[in-house]
Structures are given as structure tokens and as C-alpha cells.
């Protein structure tokens, strides 16, 4: 019983990390209709900020990671994504693929292609006992952060003028623009938030693995994409559900799969969405996007 509970807490923690990734991806998708391949590289660059500022107090290094996350997201939006804003979905996807490849290789050239280790505070790797359970502090941090982010985004989207503008832009970008929503501003805000979310994820991943590498963003961005597909495009909280499901599945497979099959759990986890899409071609919370209007 205790073991099951422990496994479920682990599953929930990984699920909420994945939900944070998916939120960053879906937010940009919602306002701009673009699935951003480079989100993984935003995560990676923020993680490298921790590596670069390892000499500073850890809190200062984390702050610099958040700043790097925002800065790179805003820069990529301004330089690469704004010119293709009106292009079709596929063209935008390829553009963000190009940005991802550039950032990834830029880090490989300047810092090195190998993984580098980063020291994190000892308190992170300790555990706290709650009743019968011993919960790693990192999982507390992940769960707490996700709860705050989801709650905060909910408030932002449904209780503020900025949130209204974002949702209006998501419904009908051109119309919102005609009605006076400042499109550039709304998109920049969405990218800035997604940059913060990416940075948080980057910091959490470094805390967990203790290292950074140029390709560390590839799996997270795929996780984010698949979570968005499972949840249903354009459904912000569908992405959260998709992320939770994927993370929980990955975590539980690690425990309950026969030992010989554990290395293949990534393959199993990424096959799973196909099963969902067979049953519901438009995701769990279904979106009309694929269905053309007449």
C-alpha cells in the first residue's frame, strides 16, 4: 500500500513537470497557432544559464535562468516567428524547427557537445517524511510550482484584461486586432510566459539530473507536443491533463514494466497517444481545428 502510494506520488510529480512543459507549448499555440519546436531549446538554454552562473548563489543562478528563458523566447518571436505569423501551420512548424537546430548547435559549438554537470543545493536531493511516505523535496517543489502556475494562469486568463485579450486573440486573431487588441503585445506576453515556464522546467530538470547537454530539450518538447495532441489543440487545460497522463504513465511504467522492457518505456509512452487518437482523432477535450468549416 505504502509502495503504491509512493509510486503514485512519483507519477504525479513527473506528470506535473510534463504539464508545465505542455503549458508552455500550448500557450504559444493558443495565441499564434504555432507549435513551437524551439520550446525545448528555451528549456535547454535556461538550464545552461544555471551552468554558466554556477559561481553565483543558487537563487541568483535560478533568477538568471528565468531571465534567459524570457529573453530567448522574446528574441525568437521577434526575429524568427513574427515574419511567418501568417504562414500555415506546417510552415511555422518548420521555422521553429530551424530555430531549434540553430540554438542547439550554437550551444554545441560554443560550450561543447558533451553533457556538463551542474551542482545543485543539497537540500533538493533530500526527502521529507509525510506520514508513511518519504517524498523527495524536488517532487514537493515540482508539485507546488505546477499548482501555482496552473492557478496563476487560470487567474490571468479568466480574471484580467490581458487574459481576455489573449483568449480573444486565440479565438479570432484578425478580429481581435480590428477591435483594438494589440496583437504584437499579446503574442509577446504569451512568449514571455512560455519562456518563464521553459526556464522553470529547465531548472527542475537540472535539479533532477545534475547535468546539461545541447540535446536535453528534444525529449521535453516532444512530451509537450504529444501532451497538447492528447489534450486537444487549443485547450489550455487539456494540455495539463495530457502532460499529467504522459508523466504518470512514464513513471509507472518504470516501476511496473518487466525489467527487460524498461529501456523501451519511451517508445511505449509515445505510442500511447496514437491509441487515444484512434479513439478520439481530435484529442481528449476535442477541438474543431482539424474539421474544416464550410
Amino acid at each position: 500500500m505504502t509502495e503504491l502510494g509512493q509510486n503514485l506520488i512519483d507519477a504525479l510529480a513527473l506528470g506535473s513537470l510534463y504539464a508545465l512543459i505542455a503549458l508552455g507549448v500550448t500557450l504559444v499555440y493558443t495565441v499564434m497557432g504555432m507549435m513551437n519546436f524551439a520550446h525545448g531549446e528555451f528549456i535547454m538554454l535556461a538550464a545552461y544559464a544555471l551552468f554558466a552562473f554556477a559561481g553565483l548563489p543558487f537563487a541568483a543562478a535560478v533568477a538568471s535562468a528565468l531571465l534567459v528563458g524570457i529573453a530567448i523566447a522574446l528574441l525568437a518571436e521577434r526575429v524568427a516567428f513574427r515574419p511567418v505569423r501568417d504562414a500555415d501551420l506546417s510552415a511555422q512548424l518548420v521555422t521553429s524547427l530551424a530555430v531549434a537546430a540553430i540554438l542547439q548547435n550554437a550551444v554545441a559549438v560554443t560550450v561543447g557537445a558533451r553533457a556538463q554537470s551542474v551542482r545543485t543545493p543539497a537540500a533538493i536531493s533530500e526527502s521529507t517524511s509525510v506520514g508513511d511516505f518519504s517524498v523527495p523535496n524536488l517532487e514537493f517543489l515540482t508539485l507546488g510550482l505546477t499548482a501555482i502556475v496552473v492557478g496563476g494562469l487560470g487567474l490571468l486568463l479568466y480574471r484580467t484584461r490581458t487574459g481576455l485579450a489573449i483568449r480573444a486573440a486565440a479565438e479570432n486573431f484578425d478580429m481581435a486586432r480590428l477591435l483594438g487588441v494589440r496583437a504584437d503585445q499579446v503574442i509577446a506576453i504569451a512568449f514571455a510566459i512560455s519562456g518563464v515556464l521553459a526556464a522553470m522546467v529547465g531548472v527542475l530538470i537540472v535539479m533532477q539530473t545534475g547535468q546539461v547537454s545541447p540535446t536535453m530539450g528534444l525529449t521535453p518538447v516532444l512530451v509537450g507536443f504529444v501532451a497538447v495532441v492528447i489534450g486537444g489543440f487549443g485547450r489550455i487545460f487539456g494540455a495539463v491533463i495530457g502532460g499529467l497522463l504522459l508523466g504518470a504513465l512514464y513513471s509507472l511504467l518504470g516501476v511496473y514494466l518487466p525489467e527487460g522492457l524498461v529501456p523501451f518505456r519511451e517508445a511505449i509512452v509515445f505510442t500511447f497517444p496514437v491509441l487515444i487518437l484512434i479513439a478520439r482523432p481530435h484529442g481528449l477535450l476535442g477541438s474543431d481545428l482539424g474539421r474544416a468549416r464550410v
Binding site: S90, L93, F225, A267, F270, T271, V274, G290
Partner: peptide, 24 residues
């Protein structure tokens, strides 16, 4: 199964396929 999904889900599920092949 993939071609049944929407125009945007296909790029993402094919990307997932690439990672599945790599993992295997």
C-alpha cells in the same frame, strides 16, 4: 491510425514515431 488524425496532429505523431524508432 495517423492519417485519421488532424492536419496538425500528423507532424507531431510522426515526430513521436521517429523517437519511438530511435528508442527501440
Amino acid at each position: 491510425p495517423l492519417m485519421r488524425t488532424s492536419t496538425l496532429a500528423i507532424p507531431i505523431s510522426t515526430f513521436a514515431f521517429l523517437v519511438v524508432v530511435y528508442n527501440v
